[in-house]
Design a protein around this nucleic acid. Structure first.
Lengths: 111, 111
DNA sequence: ATTAATATCATGCATTGCAAGGTATATAAA
DNA sequence: TTTATATACCTTGCAATGCATGATATTAAT
């Protein structure tokens, strides 16, 4: 049971949420995730994930020149990506509720 | 991105939390997790996990007769398991905060 | 020319939830 | 007896994914 295992299936949604707010490039994403409190985040996680999400048509990308380094690949959400973000948020809130009920030993009243 | 992926590394903690409250057997665990709002839970998840946790000395087990079926294997937390539960709760709250910050576009103020 | 910061990508391992299938016990109905 | 049902546990192997590692390219400063 490690901290990284708990991220499985969650990073995707977080990345969608960040891109939804404003188009970003991969390197920037790593920094933003740090700001939000996710530590020790690997680029070996982020780049393959972005490529996977583009294959699934959740995001699109465009290359733009950088002022200090190689070109950046900026990502934006597709309509399908927006929908997936909505679904993620539902699943997240569901999970959050369930885990907190377990930790506080409360049953699911179905609200 | 599926619902089951989001459970990775989280079920362990939830099971520890349930056992902490009161000793339980595997079959009962599946039912309790349903009560707490976790749906479509497989015994193919629970039993291997309990065995793994016993190997890691987080839980101990004792067989007891059942009134209606084969003997039940009741699990209790070891001191190591109690400690692991504490650590899980910390990791969970940390994750919960980070994800919610991302979803609401707030930075980590470090409280 | 060298260094450092920026920026992206590919490969392969380790972990783990779960589907699928199997075994065994107890009770009750046929 | 035979069958069915609910209870209870276990094993095998697949699929998904975070990440360690290592590679490559661009720009600016020393």
């Amino acid at each position: 049971m490690s901290s990284t295992q708990m991220l499985k299936g969650i990073i995707d949604g977080c990345i969608l949420a960040i891109i939804h707010n404003k188009e970003v490039y991969g390197y920037e994403l790593a920094e933003k995730l740090e700001e939000y409190g996710f530590h020790s985040f690997s680029e070996g996680t982020i780049y393959p994930l972005l490529i996977r999400m583009q294959k699934e048509e959740l995001v699109t990308s465009t290359l733009k020149k950088s002022t200090a380094g190689p070109r950046r690949k900026y990502y934006s959400l597709t309509p399908k990506g927006e929908l997936e973000l909505q679904k993620f948020m539902e699943r997240w809130h569901q999970l959050e509720s369930s885990v907190n009920r377990v930790l506080h030993h409360e049953s699911d009243t179905g609200q």
